[in-house]
Design a protein around this nucleic acid. Structure first.
Lengths: 197, 197, 197, 197
DNA sequence: CATGAATGAGGATTCATTCAT
DNA sequence: CATGAATGAATCCTCATTCAT
C-alpha cells in the first residue's frame, strides 16, 4: 500500500467517523476526540487533514449536495422528452439519493445551519439549483397543461421537504428497496402536481 | 403582582429563552448561560425551576406534542362524520399547529433525539398516537373506498413528514396565513391518499 | 471573614500568582493552571474573576503604571520649588517604585508588548505621561540654566531606561535599601543632565 | 550554488526567521511553524539544522554575545593608553553594537532567561566578562584619580543597563546614526563615572 | 427564590518533536 | 536534506452543575 493510498484511507476514515458522529450526536454534540477515536486516529492528527471541525462538516455537506445535484441533473437528462417523465425521474433520483446516502442527507438537513456563513453559501447554492430544476419542470408542466397545481412553487417545496424526510424513517435493511421507495415517491409527487392540489 | 405570578413569569421567560436558544443553536450548541441571560435570570437560578438542561428541552417538547395531539384530536371530533372531512381536518389542524408554533415544532423535530431515553418516550408516545390517528383515518377511508392509495401507512408517513417540514420554510409574516397554508396542505394530503399514489 | 473579604482575598491571590508566574516564565510561558494552582484555586474559577489571561496581565500592568505615575507626581509636588530638587525627587520616586515593586516593574517592562492593542494603550498612556513629566522638568532646568545637557529628551530617555533596568539586578535583601538606591540614581541622573553630556 | 552554500543559506534563513519571531512574540510566543514558514522551510526540516527550539535561541544569543564581547575588547585595544579613552571606547562600541544589531540585543535581553541552565551559562559567561572589562576600567580610572564615582561597580551596572536599553527605542531609520548615538552615550557614561555621582 | 463563587470534566485546538519515506 | 503524517502533552477556556449564603 503506497503512502498516497494510506493517507487517502485515513482521510476517508476521518470523514466517515465524522459523518457518523454528526448523525448520532449532532455537530455540537460530537467531539473531535470521538471522531478521531472512531477513525482510529489521534485527535491531533485529524488537523493534518482538516483545519477545523467546521471543515469536516463542510466537506461532508459539500460532497453530498454536489452528488445529489449531479444525480438529479443526470436523471433529467436521461429521461425522455416528456415533462412528466423528467419530473418523475428527478424526484426518483432525489429520493433514491436520500435513501442510499441516508446519513449524509440526514446530517445535511439538520446540521447545515451550524456551518459558518461562508461555508454555508456553497452548499445552499447547490440546493437552490436543485430547487430551481424542480420548479422549472413543474412550471413547464403547468404551461403545457400536463400539471394542474395552482401553486407550483409551493407544491415543489412540499414535495422536496417530503422527500428530504425520507432518511428520518427509511431503513435500508427494511422490506423496501431504495428503488421501490423512489418509484413510490415519484408517484406521490405526480399526484401532488397533477391533481387539483 | 403576587409572588406566584412572578415565579410563573420567570418560568415562562426561561422556557421561552430556552426555546429560542435551542432553535437557533440546537440543544448542544445552546448554553445555560445564554438561556439564563436571555431570560433575564442568573444561570444558577434556572436550576430553581428546572433540574437540568434536559428538563428544559423535555418541557418544551412535551407541551408542544401534547398540544398538537390535542389540536388534531379536536379537529377530528369537530369534523363531520365523513372520513374525508375528518382526515382533511386532522391534516389542517396539524399543519396549522406547525405554522403557528413554528419554533416549538422545529425544535421538536430536530432536537428530540438528544433527550434521554426516559424523557424521550413520553414525547414519542404522543407522536405515535398522532400517527395512529392519521393511519386509522386513512385505513378507514380505504376501507370505505374513499381513498385509493395502495400503501396507506407509507402515504401517511409521507404526508406527516411533509407537514412537519413546514416550519423549515414557512414565515408567519409572509403572504400566506397559517389557515391558508393548512387548507392547501389538506388538499395535498387528499391528493396523496385519493389518487393512485 | 465576610464573603466580600474572602472573594477579595481570592482575587488578590490570583493576581499575585499571575504576577509571579509572568515574572518567572513570561506571559506566554506561564499557564493558567500554574497561576491557578499557585493561587490555591481551580483553573476554571480564575475565570470568575478575570475573563481571560490577557486581563490578568492588564490588571497587573494597569495598577503598576498608575501607581508609579502617582508616586512620581506626588514626589514632584512634594519637592521644593527648585527644578533640581523636583527632578531629583521624581527620579528618586521612580527608582524607589522600581525597587519596591520589583516584580510588577519587571513584568511591565518585558510583557507589555503581549497585551492586545486596546489594553496596551491605557498603559502606554501612563508611561507617556511619566516621560512628559521628566522631559518637562529637564526642559525647564535647561531653560533656567540649571541643566546643561545638549540633548534633553534623549538624556531623559537614557535616564528612564537606566532606572527601569533596576529590577533586573536589584535584590531587596541585598545590602542596599531601596531608598539608598533611589538616592544614588537621583545623583546619577543629575550628573547626566547637569554635565556636558 | 554548491550544496554547501545552499545548506548554509537555509541555516541562515532559519536563524533570521527565529530572531524575528523571538523579537516579535518572545521565545514562548513564537512557534516552530512560524519560524519555519518565515524561513521558507518545513517545520520538520528545521530539526535537520537545530536539534530543538532552545538551540535556535542559544545560537542567536551566543553569536550576539560573542560578537559584542569581541567588539568591546577590540575597542579597548584600539583605544589609546588613557583609561578615559579606553572606557569611552568600550562604551561606544557596546552601544554601537546594540544599535546596529538591535534585534539580537533585544532578544538577548528579554529571552535569555528562558534558556536552559546549561545553555545559559555560556552566554552569561560572556556578559560577565564584558562587565568585568567595564568594571576593571572604571576601577583603574578611580585608582588613577581620573574617575570620581564613589560606587564604581554600581555605576558600571547603571551604565550597562542604560546602554542595553537602547534597542528598546532606537530606530536605525531615525535621525540619529548608530555612531552618533554611541558617541553621546560615551559622554553620558563619562559624566556618570567622572562626576560626584 | 436568588446569587456569586466554586468545580471537575471536557471542549477544540496547538505545541514541539519524531518517524518513515 | 527534505517532507507529510503522526503523536502525546499541553494550551486556554467553557461547560453544566452545585454550594454557601
Amino acid at each position: 500500500m503506497s503512502r498516497r493510498e494510506r493517507t487517502a484511507g485515513v482521510e476517508r476514515a476521518i470523514l466517515a467517523a465524522a459523518l457518523d458522529a454528526f448523525r448520532e450526536r449532532g455537530f455540537h454534540g460530537a467531539t473531535m476526540r470521538q471522531i478521531a477515536g472512531a477513525a482510529g486516529v489521534t485527535p491531533a492528527n485529524v488537523y493534518n487533514y482538516f483545519a477545523a471541525k467546521d471543515d469536516l462538516l463542510e466537506e461532508i455537506l459539500r460532497r453530498a449536495s454536489a452528488d445529489q445535484l449531479a444525480a438529479v441533473e443526470a436523471a433529467v437528462e436521461t429521461a425522455g422528452p416528456a415533462v412528466r417523465d423528467q419530473f418523475a425521474g428527478a424526484v426518483s433520483a432525489y429520493v433514491r439519493f436520500e435513501a442510499e446516502r441516508l446519513a449524509e442527507c440526514l446530517v445535511s438537513a439538520s446540521e447545515l445551519r451550524y456551518l459558518g456563513p461562508a461555508h454555508r453559501e456553497r452548499i445552499v447554492a447547490c440546493r437552490d439549483r436543485e430547487q430551481e430544476i424542480f420548479e422549472h419542470l413543474v412550471a413547464k408542466g403547468v404551461a403545457e397543461g400536463v400539471f394542474g397545481t395552482p401553486h407550483p412553487d409551493e407544491a415543489c417545496l412540499a414535495i422536496l421537504t417530503m422527500c428530504s424526510a425520507v432518511p428520518l424513517w427509511y431503513r435500508p435493511d427494511g422490506p423496501l428497496t431504495a428503488a421501490d421507495l423512489a418509484a413510490r415517491y415519484a408517484r406521490y409527487a405526480l399526484a401532488l402536481v397533477e391533481g387539483i392540489a
